[in-house]
């Protein structure tokens, strides 16, 4: 009897569902990613600005700075403003941190390692990305503060300008691979990565992705110098920590999605096929590609100033959407004249 229970527990602990929930892409991955990337961002941004960045906490290059900051945020008090809509005020950051993690369920980390294998995985990821901006709008309204309200309204503009080109630019990928299934999309890139076949689409997707995850130079809803801290102004303590957490999870999801669509996802050579399981090698490759994407996004943060809201709308409506449509037409022509390029 005891042996059976023990086997059951052991079976559960080594089962795929448990590993996916607690390791990749589950709790451990998300937590470690946030801790490391926040430190890495501060360090790399400092190097771009010829500074040192975090230096003292944790002895080696300030590696424990993020942990110290998180602990500080945990013990701080958060004060809801008078006449705030309490339910929205408390729940918006919680959902803002948890909803982007759902996008990770659609991303394939290896041919078999997906939390939710689906024939419309790309659409699931897009649906989750489309859900995220609603929460800042609720938060901005619930805080009963002008700065947060303006920040929330700006998110609506940014969302409309960024999401349509994001959808349109990925159409080329779908046409080339002939599928919405992310595994099929990755497998279609076994000969060429789609960034080589679709440089224009990749560029449009990349720019609108930055707008969707609200990174500099498109951090218009937060806009530290104009709007205090945008829709996050009234949040303190761990609620503020959760909003930052959500932002970095969006960053992870966005980078993973870009790697999957354009950089060949989990594809990559396994150096020791008998020694390393192929699942591990696939995960290592997609995480490596994600790391490269995150690095590029951070350096972009150091390089460019923030756009005004009208400049973003101009970019989105007058440049990105037409370019995405041109990309679609080019892909159609490519498939018509050279049918062998696609994986379909």
């Amino acid at each position: 009897m005891m042996q059976q229970i023990w086997d059951l527990i052991l079976g559960f602990l080594t089962s795929k569902y448990f590993l996916q929930l607690f390791f990749i892409p589950g709790i451990a991955f998300i937590g470690l990613f946030t801790l490391i990337v926040v430190w890495f961002e501060r360090k790399l941004l400092a190097r771009v600005m010829l500074r040192y960045g975090p230096l003292h906490v944790g002895r080696v290059a300030g590696i424990l700075q993020t942990l110290a900051d998180t602990l500080k945020l945990l013990f701080k008090e958060f004060i809801p403003p008078r006449k705030a809509y309490k339910l929205g005020f408390y729940l918006a950051p919680v959902f803002y941190a948890s909803v982007p993690t759902l996008a990770l369920t659609a991303i394939p980390f290896s041919p078999t390692w997906i939390v939710y294998p689906s024939d419309v995985g790309l659409l699931i990821a897009y649906a989750v990305i489309a859900c995220t901006p609603i929460l800042p709008i609720i938060a901005g309204w619930a805080c009963n503060n002008r700065y947060t309200m303006i920040g929330g309204l700006r998110i609506i503009f940014q969302d409309v300008a960024g999401e349509i080109p994001l959808l349109l630019s990925a159409l080329g990928v779908v046409m080339l691979s002939g599928s919405f299934n992310l595994v099929n999309i990755v497998n279609a890139q076994s000969r060429y990565w789609f960034i080589l076949l679709q440089p224009l689409g990749a560029l449009v997707f990349f720019i609108s992705l930055i707008a969707m995850v609200e990174r500099v130079p498109f951090d218009i809803p937060t806009a530290e110098q104009e709007l205090v801290f945008g829709w996050r102004t009234e949040y303190g303590g761990i609620l503020f920590g959760l909003t930052m957490f959500g932002e970095y999870i969006s960053l992870a999801a966005g980078s993973l999605l870009f790697s999957t669509l354009y950089l060949g996802g989990y594809l990559g050579p396994n150096p020791f096929p008998g020694f390393i399981p192929s699942d591990f090698a696939s995960m290592a490759w997609i995480l490596l590609k994600m790391a490269v994407m995150v690095t590029v996004l951070i350096v972009i943060r150091g390089a460019y100033p923030r756009l005004r809201i009208d400049q973003l709308l101009n970019l989105g409506w007058k440049w990105l959407i037409p370019l995405a449509m041109i990309n679609t037409v080019l892909t159609m022509l490519m498939i018509y004249f050279f049918p062998w390029v696609g994986g379909a």
Binding site: R47, V48, L50, I300, A303, Y304
Partner: peptide, 19 residues
Amino acid sequence: RPLVLAFSHVFRRVFTAKY
């Protein structure tokens, strides 16, 4: 240009003194 400049700064000497 700013992107290339930002990338090149990563490999440059840090200006700050550790006061």
